[in-house]
């Protein structure tokens, strides 16, 4: 059986991620309970409110199992709120993060909603030109340690994409655009092959 990719579905734009996975022909599952977490081979943590998601992770007993599976090598990708939860330290969040990636996160680092923006970002390992990255009350990554690798920056050098082994963090939302290249990159990292033959570049040209 094809490995299933899970999307943490406690709160946020999980449906958008599930829809991209479905378009890529990958078996996907929305994850709200422990038994669902056990069934997936990789996990995406979506955008949303990190305070809400971290509280629900703790209350429904998903926090430790998720952490253990990620430490055991399960590929995990966090977008925005999801990325916040992956960091070793989060400024201005008085709740525990999963502490899995060697970096510090500043929440709402660009300001309030009126400062939300789109910008082109080149991502290491993704060909075909920059991705149009959507930043919504977005965090930034600072103090990226030697265990982690910066994959993408804004023009001013701000770090917005980081990889550490099986873990991927983006402070923007690839799930809000039609460009599926970042999803495909994560699936490659997770060893899951998209079933649909249509290439991202062909799609982006539509």
């Amino acid at each position: 059986m094809e490995p299933t990719v899970g999307v943490l579905a406690l709160q946020g734009d999980f449906a958008e991620h599930l829809s991209v996975l479905t378009r890529l022909g990958v078996p996907a599952l929305d994850v709200r309970r422990r038994d669902q977490l056990e069934r997936v081979a990789a996990l995406i943590m979506p955008g949303g409110e990190s305070t809400t998601i971290s509280r629900l992770l703790l209350q429904f007993g998903l926090f430790e199992p998720l952490r253990e599976r990620a430490l055991a090598g399960m590929p995990v990708w966090g977008t925005c709120a999801g990325a916040i939860l992956l960091a070793r330290e989060v400024r201005t969040l008085d709740r525990p993060s999963l502490g899995l990636m060697d970096m510090v996160v500043d929440r709402n680092a660009f300001g309030r909603q009126i400062d939300s923006f789109e910008a082109d970002v080149e991502i290491e390992g993704i060909g075909g030109g920059p991705v149009r990255a959507v930043f919504i009350r977005a965090p930034i990554f600072t103090d990226v340690g030697p265990q982690a690798r910066v994959l993408g920056r804004l023009a001013d050098g701000t770090v917005v994409a980081v990889r550490q082994g099986n873990l991927l963090a983006t402070s923007f939302h690839p799930e809000l655009t039609d460009d599926t290249r970042v999803h495909e990159r994560f699936l490659e990292l997770a060893g899951v092959r998209p079933a649909r033959g249509e290439t991202a570049v062909a799609r982006a040209g539509r």
Binding site: T52, I114, T177
Partner: peptide, 21 residues
């Protein structure tokens, strides 16, 4: 392309982040 603030996608996008909440 140039960075762009307050596009319809960032406006509607915040609502997408609130979903399920």
């Amino acid at each position: 392309q140039e960075p762009e603030k307050a596009t319809f996608r960032t406006k509607a996008g915040l609502a997408q982040m609130l979903k399920g909440g």
